[in-house]
């Protein structure tokens, strides 16, 4: 879900930009040069994943997978997803320029929160347990994202409250799909390459 230029009030746009800069600074502190190849590669992987459309009834939705990004990248998910949003805005025309900060907070904020809350559990849990935590993380990230969208719209003005409510309701099926996919992805990745969840941003917190 991208917010476009001109829709939000100035305080919300500026607040979003400030938060995004803070998040980027914090994310980059966890990324020494040595980690750039793996972070860049995973950032590219999540960019490609967001181009995948999965069917839902007669329609289809594209994946976000910010929960999975948070579980794998930790704090580094913030700059990684920012890069993806920047490229989408510049080359695809999705989203906007002044709202880039708000959009980054909306997508990457939940990713980092899920990563911090559940990352350790995924590392230590059994295979099945990790898949379940992964599914919870996938759903939680989308729920938080729509909540952040709703918050940005509501802070802008009361006239957006119905739209914000609609955004949340429309994303309930997306939460279910992201939960299933994230669970399955965690199940496979933990079996094949458990190091993936060692949190590439490192335990420097």
């Amino acid at each position: 879900m991208h917010i476009v230029d001109g829709a939000l009030s100035n305080p919300v746009v500026i607040g979003g930009a400030v938060l995004a800069v803070g998040g980027l600074a914090q994310g980059l502190r966890h990324l020494p040069m040595e980690k750039i190849p793996v972070a860049g590669m995973l950032s590219a992987a999540f960019f490609v994943a967001s181009l995948i459309h999965v069917p839902i009834g007669p329609s289809s939705v594209h994946l976000v997978l910010n929960g999975l990004a948070g579980l794998v990248l930790g704090w580094a998910a913030f700059p990684a997803l920012f890069v993806g949003l920047l490229l989408q805005a510049v080359f695809f025309g999705f989203g906007g320029l002044t709202v880039l900060g708000v959009n980054t907070v909306i997508i990457a904020g939940p990713a980092v929160l899920v990563g911090l809350a559940l990352g350790r559990r995924i590392q230590t849990a059994s295979l099945k347990g990790a898949a379940v935590w992964g599914a919870i993380g996938g759903a939680l990230a989308i729920a938080l994202t729509t909540l952040f969208v709703a918050l940005a719209l509501t802070l802008t003005g009361d006239e957006f409250i119905p739209a914000a409510r609609l955004v949340f309701l429309a994303h309930i099926p997306v939460m279910a799909i992201e939960a299933l996919l994230t669970g399955a992805a965690v199940y496979l990745a933990k079996q094949v390459k458990p190091e993936l969840f060692d949190n590439i941003a490192g335990a420097r917190t």
Binding site: M41, L42, I52, L180, G183, A184, A185, Y187, K193, L196
Partner: peptide, 25 residues
């Protein structure tokens, strides 16, 4: 089945990207 397969697909892509990045480094 479809969603699980997509999930495995994404998981496999992450695994392969990480291995590729190790070779690159």
């Amino acid at each position: 089945h479809s969603y699980r397969s997509f999930g495995y697909l994404v998981g496999m892509m992450l695994v392969r990207s990480m291995e590729r990045s190790e070779r690159i480094l």
